[in-house]
């Protein structure tokens, strides 16, 4: 019974996981990233357009990532260089992504999907699915075991820490945001590659859900991605609903859980101290 839910869980969790990792990089560097939704959407759009134009899914993946990074660059310029309100910028970018993709591609053709790899005992999934756990561990090691990770986190913890070491906070914030665009872009590509086409607003709030996972996982890659698997499982339950539980309840479970975690009833969730702080 539970075994039947695994494929759906993996497929639902993967795009969330990539976006969540992206969110962690950006927020650890001190920049609130509500634009994950838009970055995923434009990633999915880029994948479909790139694949349609060139006929190659690899080129599509590249375009999707490029678009994600491009949108992230806009977020970075606005929030880091121009000190714009991060929350509002993120929402503006989401509306921008929704509009541009709807304008340029009201209807998409069918495109090919990214290659699936057959693994013994596990089954056949897109290689992106296998990439997620690898990236999760790499991100953990990078953030907590390398000097660069320390600096990125320092950018998020305090506005002066890096300046004291005569390092640039700006540089690390740009790095964090662009990386989040890259990862959210991959998440979007995966989304489009699994269904083989693009529809307007196809991310349907997944970016916000990924952000919830970031908070649920206390801004840590291992627990953040685990939260994505939990949320993916909730979606799988919802799709395979056989117990007459209202789907809407399962649907909103991740959001309720996130609020509970945020309050601190279950463990503690502490954001980076400098998150959202603008002054340099």
């Amino acid at each position: 019974m539970i075994l039947n839910l695994i494929p759906t869980t993996l497929r639902m969790a993967t795009p969330l996981g990539f976006a969540a990792l992206g969110g962690i990089y950006s927020e650890r560097a001190g920049v609130i990233n509500l634009a994950l939704e838009g970055m995923m959407l434009i990633g999915a759009f880029g994948y479909v357009v790139g694949t349609q134009v060139s006929g190659s899914v690899w080129f599509g993946l590249l375009v999707g990532i490029g678009f994600g990074v491009g949108l992230a660059l806009l977020h970075a310029i606005a929030t880091v260089t121009f000190h714009a309100e991060q929350v509002v910028t993120g929402i503006g970018i989401n509306i921008l992504a929704l509009g541009i993709t709807e304008y340029l591609l009201p209807m998409s053709k069918q495109v090919g999907g990214l290659p699936h790899w057959e693994l013994p005992f596990i089954g056949s999934y897109s290689f992106i699915v296998y990439l997620l756990p690898v990236l999760m561990i790499v991100s953990h090691l990078f953030l907590f075991k390398t000097p660069w990770g320390l600096r990125l986190r320092a950018a998020g913890e305090s506005t002066e820490a890096l300046a004291a070491l005569s390092l640039s906070r700006t540089k690390w914030q740009y790095f964090g945001i662009l990386l989040s665009g890259l990862l959210a872009g991959v998440g979007g590509c995966f989304l489009a590659s699994e269904v083989h086409y693009f529809t307007k607003g196809m991310t349907a709030g997944r970016g916000y859900l990924a952000l919830a996972a970031v908070i649920f996982g206390n801004w840590r890659p291992l627990s953040g991605v685990s939260a994505c698997f939990l949320f993916g499982f909730a979606t799988a339950l919802e799709l395979a609903n056989r117990w007459n539980i209202p789907v809407q309840l399962l649907n909103s479970l991740p959001y309720i859980l996130t609020m509970v975690v945020l309050i601190g009833f279950v463990g503690t969730s502490r954001p980076p101290a400098g998150l959202g702080k603008i002054k340099s």
Partner: peptide
């Protein structure tokens, strides 16, 4: 209609930048 949404998004980003 997406054209107007896109413009609306840009407008928001521009306005927050000016404010910042």
């Amino acid at each position: 209609r997406g054209l107007f949404f896109a413009g609306q998004g840009l407008l928001i980003v521009w306005l927050v930048c000016v404010e910042g």
